[in-house]
Computed example of a mutant assay.
Amino acid sequence: MNNLFDLTGRVALVTGCSTGLGVQMAKALANQGASIIALARRQELIEQVAKEIHDTYGVDTLAIRCDITDTDMVDKAIDEALAHFGKIDILINNAGTGAVAPAEDITDDQFSNELNIDLFGTFKVARAVAKKAMIPAKYGRIINISSMYGLVGNKIAPSSPYHAAKGGVVNLTRALAGEWGKHGITVNSICPGYFYTPLTKETLDSDYFKEYAKTAIPMERYGVEGELDTAAVFLASPASSYVTGIALPVDGGYTSM
């Protein structure tokens, strides 16, 4: 029986691939045989990640420093990736940030920065990869990492710019799915719930947040390493060939209530 999730021969580009969920998803794709292009701002970290993935999974890897808010850097990064691999089959738009403060105290700069990274940055990378690689190839899998906060509001961690940007990612995903389906490109979003990352650990480990989680999450716990990976592998694989435009929550049921 064929392995529906086999990615051997595919090339995957992952943004925000220096720490946290980006690295986990890159490893999951590499485990299925995909070559990996690690994009992030911190050169030393992405080189370490690329080396670790190559050494562990035996796939070809490439580390490219890129700030996704810089259009020229994005274009040059995609050109460099194509010069090395000749194609990009899979894109995981994972790079992002998060401003937490009461809405009435959020500054213009905070709101603008959030949209510039999480929403506009996601678009810039998708645009470049689609135009330079996927549309010419008539094939592509684009996975935009949104958030369950892109689907709902919340009372525990005020972060209106993040909600706005991630909600934008969900509908941007639908728009791109509508436009690029004719080119053989699927565009989907994943909406993670509470997962441990270097950015979230301190908050998630606090007593008040643990108590909140028990009532707000039907499974009464946070997501653990590996529980996001299967969604990414599915949406990157041949198994999802007729799935496009969706927002897939991986949140322990948070958005079901």
Results as ranks from 00 to 15, higher is better:
19 T>C: 06
21 L>S: 09
25 M>G: 12
28 A>G: 15
29 L>W: 04
35 S>G: 08
36 I>T: 08
37 I>D: 07
38 A>C: 14
39 L>T: 13
42 R>T: 14
47 E>V: 13
49 V>Y: 02
49 V>G: 12
51 K>D: 08
52 E>H: 11
54 H>L: 11
54 H>A: 15
55 D>L: 06
55 D>H: 13
55 D>Y: 09
60 D>T: 14
60 D>M: 14
61 T>N: 00
61 T>Y: 07
63 A>P: 15
68 I>L: 14
71 T>N: 12
71 T>M: 01
72 D>N: 05
73 M>L: 04
76 K>M: 06
76 K>T: 03
81 A>S: 12
82 L>M: 13
85 F>Q: 00
90 I>D: 00
92 I>W: 02
95 A>R: 08
96 G>Q: 11
97 T>Q: 14
101 A>C: 09
101 A>G: 02
102 P>N: 12
102 P>E: 11
104 E>Y: 13
104 E>L: 14
104 E>Q: 15
105 D>K: 13
106 I>F: 09
106 I>G: 00
110 Q>W: 05
113 N>C: 01
113 N>W: 13
114 E>W: 04
116 N>G: 01
118 D>F: 00
119 L>Y: 00
124 K>N: 11
124 K>H: 00
124 K>W: 00
124 K>G: 01
125 V>Q: 05
128 A>R: 02
129 V>T: 11
130 A>N: 04
130 A>V: 10
132 K>Q: 14
133 A>Y: 02
133 A>G: 02
135 I>R: 02
135 I>G: 07
